[in-house]
Design a protein around this nucleic acid. Sequence first.
DNA 1: CCTTACATGTAATCCGTTACATGATTAG
DNA 2: CTAATCATGTAACGGATTACATGTAAGG
Lengths: 187, 187
Amino acid sequence: MALEHALLVALRERPAAGLDLARRFDASIGYFWTATHQQVYRVLGRMERDGWVTSRVVPQEGRPEKKEYAVTTLGETVLADWLAQPLQRDPVRSAVAVTLRGASYGDRDTVLAHVEELIADHRTRHAAYTAMAARDYPDPTALSGQALDQYLVLRGGLLMEETWIAWLTEYAAAHRPAHRTAAQEPR
Amino acid sequence: MALEHALLVALRERPAAGLDLARRFDASIGYFWTATHQQVYRVLGRMERDGWVTSRVVPQEGRPEKKEYAVTTLGETVLADWLAQPLQRDPVRSAVAVTLRGASYGDRDTVLAHVEELIADHRTRHAAYTAMAARDYPDPTALSGQALDQYLVLRGGLLMEETWIAWLTEYAAAHRPAHRTAAQEPR
DNA sequence: CCTTACATGTAATCCGTTACATGATTAG
DNA sequence: CTAATCATGTAACGGATTACATGTAAGG
């Protein structure tokens, strides 16, 4: 539903081929959207059919040629119209939360071990975002326009990672003491 | 993929009919999962066919009868197996973030107005969760087991709301000053 | 040659959303 | 008898995931 618009934003920032876009969704855009290359190719095909983007074949040195996509004026209009829509809260669908809430119906020690692993993963991601911010936006107060928006969305990624770490840590802490000291919970 | 497991957790907490579950997903479970009644009915049907749950018809006073579902021992096993799986970070797919990052390709004032509305929505939700926490868990330190898990997931909902408010506020603040002081942008 | 990385796709399947359909019961 | 609420569904469509398919080019 909105992958098309995420692609329009990405392509307006810089024209790119399908795989390039898929890689961006793995890396720099990954903190607010994920997409596989299959998905990207299919949606790009539909967008080209509808005239939102055009493609041109670009030969490369020592690599197979690629199809670089760019946004058309129609695509610009479509994006501007979409951006003018009222914002709705993003739908929540957290398998992690389901697991945490249901932990007493399974083996809690296993869940807690997995929570620790997940915390480590979020810490790693947080460190990566911090490094990106320091490298790409050393002086945030000087930013405006697109660069400011990009920085602020990266800030959102950072804040979300911090929240996940705080929440999962609180969850683990609330369960571990009772688990270490009291003999009341046999399993 | 995990709606079935969310339903298993909900039904282990308390057996219920399809509409009851859909209402719970609108209310108390809504801060970590959403589902419409159509979805719930279809998945419940499949789960009953697979023997994860059983249903019994319950007559009601002054209302049509309902089909109450409960988890079978097979369903308990399925849930326990699923809970033992390693936790993966929840996939991110935020149309809000796409909008924020792409704002310069549309009308920024409109986006900022919608951001303010969204902040208000998150504040409302945050207040509702706070009230739920005060009403249902007045003394969190006394909790353990399922009740503790439910409380901690509600805590996660609260933390997420706070993060959304902080992030959107930061976004608006970073854009508004340039907008108020400079005479370049009349409105 | 064989493997690896690059590049673009198709097909099958499953999940989710939206619109529609049906019937019971109560309140007006 | 009509409208509103409760309750359970079906059907159609589109989006997303997973597995598979094809071909180019460099490196060992």
